[in-house]
Amino acid sequence: MKLSKVFFNGVVKENPIFVQLIGMCSVLAVTTAAKNGLAMGLAVTGVLIGSNVVVSLIRKVVPNKIRIPAFIVVIATFVTIVEMFMKAYAQDLYNALGIFIPLIVVNCIILARAESFASKHGLLASAVDGLGMGVGYTLALLILSILREFLGSGSIFDIQMLGPSFEPAIIFLMPPGAFILLGILIGIFNSIRNKQASKEVLQKEEAR
């Protein structure tokens, strides 16, 4: 299993947000500012790599019937560790992300990867898969949060981009904006994928 393939699978082909369509709650909630989106992305990537590695390590020892609760315990442990370290070393980000840090436990992406990949593959591949999915997730968060912050407060990473005469559209910082923007982004991604797929079909036809 080529590691680079595993990595890019997580970023593009099976991007958790744009393709697999899981892990949505956090995406909508924390993307009001680019730095929050980035922080959340990094936190989730950390938990993903950690839990994928541990699940891969114990995959031969854990009986099938209790694998889901066992995975949940592993994930919850990593989330709590991330929580503690954020609270100790990055309190402002901890306060900004609020309840969505402990909610990383129920972020479907992590359990899904543990169940469908890490429990069936070796250590290195699982770690890279965790990294790839995490990067894909973070990219999606960054795109959405940069858009929302720019349209909603005129800034990116707290740097004011437009002059004071720009009236930001606050709706983008509020729930409706999040839903609508994400819907449009997925729609754009879908349309790119559809064009790609029909191009591939045409190429196969011509090759015959």
Binding site: P63, K65, P69, V73, T77, T80, M84, K87, A88
Partner: peptide, 30 residues
């Protein structure tokens, strides 16, 4: 099954206890 799950949870809890003691002072200070 219950025993294995219990062991996993116990290991998790001890890892967290260690992590807690490492960070709790820093958190209080922050």
């Amino acid at each position: 099954l219950a025993l294995i799950l219990f062991i996993i949870t116990a290991v998790a809890a001890s890892v967290l206890a260690i992590s807690n003691s490492v960070t709790s002072e820093r958190i209080a200070e922050a």
